[in-house]
Structures are given as structure tokens and as C-alpha cells.
Design a protein around this nucleic acid. Structure first.
Lengths: 210, 210
DNA sequence: CCTGTTAATGACCGCACGGTCAGTAAGGGC
DNA sequence: GCCCTTACTGACCGTGCGGTCATTAACAGG
């Protein structure tokens, strides 16, 4: 009788107090990225982490806490060593811009940039602290770096001195838009990243005017 | 006894077969825009429309059907008579661009652009047909219009002839980004629309190079 | 004024899922 | 090898909400 009931594989229990939280966060990250906060079930996270649902509550207060930990971990991991790039570089502004942007384009192609963007848009209203964190840890540093590139360009007399105001904010706009395009229309109408990057730089550098 | 129970206001029943669907769609639109698909309850839509929950099911198959009808109605309503603008205009390219963009900026400020964008990002995975519709009815026409502006500018010899490839797609990128900014950071760090628009046009027209 | 048709209602059902907790077993200390 | 601590489990509970349907009442036609 007991044997008959044992058709489903017998789960072996392990005690691994130290590793659990990180494993739960990793599993949560994968599930949340795929389905968003609402549609992700704790059961799914538990199954992916190879534990029972109750175990999650040994380490996290509730679902929201798991989510916050997951997003923070992801931000931490993706947060490029922004800024370090432009310090020790001695090429032209255009080359520097290409270097920075192509790295960003890489993150878009690989998916992490779009995932974060989507998460911020969909879960922002429910987790305003996360928006704050994102703004402060990612957006502001990125803008500062762009401003640095512009200043450097002006100093090297490669770009016009009026290029000060919101420009640093807009220079990356086509990349942001591409990231959004990936979220919305990647299947409907795919974009050729290499060509797009070339033209992004050309437009930003040269403008339309003849 | 009956009188005692009648403390809550007595709801009067009305039979208005014709007007109901539109009213339900309008109520749904408001609720969905505020809370998104998942978090919107049929009860709320019913209450806003001044009817009982069951009545919705006389006119719609289920919650998804209400949502689709609402978004389609909104798209229909917001879909500017795009294209008509650039037909009969005889100013410079820069002036035309300013005309078109300032209209778009108006929609961003007023909120409708951001609402649609947010909806597409959050509900896109669940309603791919809506993404298709959006791409086909809004994005493609808008891109065609922008391409028209560029062609016209080249013909008038106001802009460089190389301005053909993805440029028409990127010209509006700062506006898309602003729309996104409104969704994410409107409270954290507000942006001055007028200045931003000026600089948007200046950047796109002139580029960075000196 | 009566009556048949049907628009409208809201109590109810079922299910999905977040969260709990009494019970179980891993494994370290003696 | 035994026992005690505690990490771990999963059956269970409560709630919220999408969807149903027997009942009610608005209104038109006679």
C-alpha cells in the first residue's frame, strides 16, 4: 500500500539555511521576469527553487518581499560600472559614444535592459520605492556619464558648445526606444541592430540640417 | 420592517439596451487605465457604469472582451488624423516638425499617450492582437508621416539627402522617451516640456557636431 | 389595466492563490 | 546510537473575484 502511494518521486529533504535565500531570489527573478508580479505564483517559485512553498516564508515576509529582493538583485547585477568607461579613453567623442552605446545595445539584444524596463513600467505603480531606486542607481548615473561625454567633447572642441541642456538626456533616446520596440514589436517587425546603431550615432552627431 | 431594510438607496432599474455597451466600454476604459487588466474588478466597472455586474455579461462574453473593446475604442479616439497635417503645409521643415511634435507633446502632457503606452507594455503579452493593432493603426502610419516629412525636407533642400534610413523612426525618439519618463519618473523628477521640446528639435535638426 | 417578453439584478458558486502551522526528519552534539 | 534543535514540508484556511442563473420588474401591445 505504501509502495503504491509512492508513485510520485520521493523528495529528499535538505537543510541549507545559508543558500536558500539566494536560490529563492534567483527562482523568483526568473518567474517574475516571465510573468510579472501578479501572474507569478509562489508555488512556481518554490518548484523552480526545488523547495516547498512554506519554506519561502522562513526567509521572506511575503510575496512582495521576494519580488523586491529579486529586482534589487537584478539591478545590482546589471548596473554597469557606468562612468568608469569614459574616464580612461582617448578617442574621439564619436568613438566614445559608439563604445558606450554598443555596450547598451548589447544589453538590449541580450534582453536584460528590456526586462528591467518592462518591470519598471508594469510594477512601478505598486512598488514606487523600486522606481526611486532605479532612478537613483541607474538613470541618474547614466545621465551623469552622458553629461560627462558631452563636456569632454566640448573641451576637445569636437562638439558644439551649446550642447549642454537636455541633450545628455536625449542622446540615448533612440536606444531607449529600441528597447521599448523590443518589448512591443520584436516579433511583428524586427529591427537590424547594427544598422540602427550606425544611424543612431550619425543622427545624433550630424543632425538633419544640410 | 421593509422600510427599515430600505436604508440603502433604492436603485431604480432602467432598460436601455442601446446605450449599455458604450457605457460599459467607457467605464471599463477608465478603470483599466487606472489599475490595469488584472487589478480591475468587474464590480468596479459595473458600479461606475451604474449597473449590476451581471448586466455586463448580457453584452460581453467575459472580462477580456470588455478590455479589448475598451482599448480599441481608445485607440480609435486617440488616433490623430495623422498624415493630414503635413499635406497642406508650406513652412520650413523645422516649423513642420515643431507643429507635429508639439501636438504629440500635448498628448503626452494630457496623459493619453502615456496611458496607451503603459497599457501596451503591461497587457501586450496577454493580448498580442492588441499589439498588432497598435503597430498597424498607430505606429506604421506615424512612421509613414515622419518619412513624408523627411522626403519633403529633402525636396525643399532643407535637410541632407542621406536622411533616409531609420531616421524617420528615430526623430520622435526623445518624445517617446519623455512619454516613458512621465510614466516612471513624473513625480520623482519632473521635466519642463517647453524647454525639452525646443531642445529636442534643436538636437534633431542640428546634431552635436560643431 | 392586464400580460408576455426580456433587460436587469445580485446572491451564489467554484476556483485560484497567498499565507499559516502542526507535524516531520535532517543532522550535529554528546 | 540517541536526542534535541530547527529547517523544512504540504494540507489546509480564508478571501477575492470571474462568471452563472433564478428571480424581478420595466415597458410595449392589446
Amino acid at each position: 500500500m505504501q509502495d503504491m502511494l509512492n508513485t510520485q518521486e520521493t523528495r529528499v529533504r535538505h537543510r541549507r539555511k545559508e543558500e536558500r535565500p539566494a536560490e529563492i531570489v534567483a527562482a523568483g527573478l526568473a518567474e517574475f521576469a516571465e510573468r510579472g508580479f501578479e501572474r507569478t505564483r509562489l508555488e512556481d517559485i518554490a518548484k523552480r527553487a526545488g523547495i516547498a512553498k512554506g519554506t519561502i516564508y522562513l526567509y521572506f515576509r511575503n510575496k512582495e518581499a521576494v519580488f523586491e529582493a529579486a529586482v534589487e538583485a537584478h539591478l545590482e547585477a546589471t548596473l554597469a560600472d557606468v562612468g568608469a568607461l569614459s574616464q580612461s579613453f582617448d578617442g574621439t567623442t564619436e568613438e566614445l559614444l559608439r563604445l558606450i552605446l554598443s555596450r547598451f545595445y548589447g544589453q538590449i539584444a541580450e534582453g536584460s535592459a528590456s526586462t528591467i524596463l518592462r518591470t519598471m513600467v508594469t510594477e512601478g505603480p505598486r512598488f514606487p520605492e523600486l522606481l526611486k531606486l532605479y532612478h537613483e542607481r541607474v538613470i541618474t548615473p547614466a545621465e551623469a556619464m552622458m553629461a560627462g561625454v558631452l563636456e569632454r567633447g566640448v573641451a576637445r572642441q569636437e562638439i558644439s558648445a551649446e550642447a549642454v541642456p537636455h541633450y545628455h538626456r536625449m542622446i540615448a533616446a533612440p536606444a531607449i526606444m529600441l528597447s521599448l520596440w523590443q518589448i512591443l514589436f520584436a516579433e511583428i517587425e524586427p529591427i537590424d541592430f547594427d544598422r540602427y546603431l550606425d544611424e543612431h550615432i550619425a543622427l545624433v552627431m550630424g543632425g538633419l540640417r544640410r
